[in-house]
């Protein structure tokens, strides 16, 4: 690892200032992606700005029809939050399936969403639940947020502060995990929301995406049978040593049906 200057500001203004003065600085949340990246010398920041002392980023609250999850909320806190289990159990179950207990103790929702790993779990929840991503300067709708592999609309140094999830009527996430890393080979989140039924797929393509045909079918009939005949073309899907694109296309249908069934039994 190359050396860097480490900062742990206790408020957002100071964090933003350090980032402004140091163009080569980077933000550190749980470090579960960034530290392995630094160890491999794939990044060489001059400064690392740890957000963990900024208390306002570590708040989880239910207000009216939505749940607001602070960017620094760990996967473990999301998975054990009573408020979430009562309002969006699909989201707490998703968090419980990320990595392993030690990763969940450190990794955060903000880091996962900012990173937009093609095999990460949270992007599927953000997109399916029609969440909005709040940053230090604006609010971004889920449909606009994810732009490609490891890419989002976030500007350089734009800090995510929280993510607002409208409470759905029901939702569930099912993933076929890589048995070694636990990342999604294919993960599907299905949500029956105010904005209609939304189906988001992670792991299968370069970035999370929605499946309009399934959404339409489920809007008419929210049952696994309604989407039994819908398959994706393998053309644009990922193919690697873990799974071919044809296999991933097949898994999308299977995981989507499982997700509908588990949403119905929650």
């Amino acid at each position: 690892m190359y050396d860097f200057a480490y900062h742990r500001p206790d408020n957002l203004d100071d964090a933003a200032n350090i980032l402004k003065i140091n163009p080569e600085a980077t933000v550190l949340a749980g470090g579960m992606t960034l530290i392995p990246t630094l160890k491999l010398r794939l990044a060489n920041p001059s400064d690392v700005v740890d957000l963990s002392a900024i208390d306002s980023l570590n708040v989880l609250s239910v207000a009216g029809e939505k749940v607001s999850v602070g960017a620094m909320t760990t996967h473990s806190d999301v998975s054990t939050s009573k408020e979430l289990m009562e309002t969006i159990p699909g989201l707490s179950r998703l968090a419980k399936g990320i990595g392993d207990p030690h990763v969940r103790h450190r990794g955060t929702i903000g880091g996962s969403v900012a990173n937009n790993d093609p095999a990460a779990d949270y992007p599927a929840a953000v997109l399916a639940l029609n969440a909005s991503v709040n940053t230090i300067s604006r609010t971004i709708n889920a449909d606009e947020f994810f732009t490609g592999q490891f890419a989002t609309v976030l500007e350089e140094h734009e800090i995510i502060t929280s993510i607002d999830f409208p409470i759905p009527r029901r939702s569930a996430y099912e993933k076929f995990s890589n048995p070694a890393s636990r990342y999604a080979i294919v993960g599907v989140m299905v949500a029956d929301t105010e904005a209609g039924v939304r189906v988001a797929v992670t792991g299968a393509g370069p970035s999370v995406f929605r499946v309009a045909k399934m959404e339409e079918a489920l809007s008419n009939d929210f049952s696994a049978d309604a989407i039994a005949g819908i398959t994706l073309s393998a053309d644009d899907l990922n193919s690697d040593i873990h799974a071919s694109s044809e296999y991933r296309a097949h898994l999308v249908s299977v995981m989507a049906m499982r997700a509908v069934n588990s949403a119905l039994t929650q």
């Binding site: 480490y6 742990r8 550190l28 470090g31 579960m32 530290i35 392995p36 690392v48 740890d50 963990s52 473990s76 207990p101 030690h102 990763v103 103790h105 450190r106």
Partner: peptide
């Protein structure tokens, strides 16, 4: 794996300064 503030974490994936 060690415990930091009572929670199991991977000490190879945490900076010493994060444990201040």
């Amino acid at each position: 794996v060690v415990h930091v503030n009572g929670k199991a974490v991977k000490s190879c994936t945490m900076l010493a300064l994060q444990a201040d």
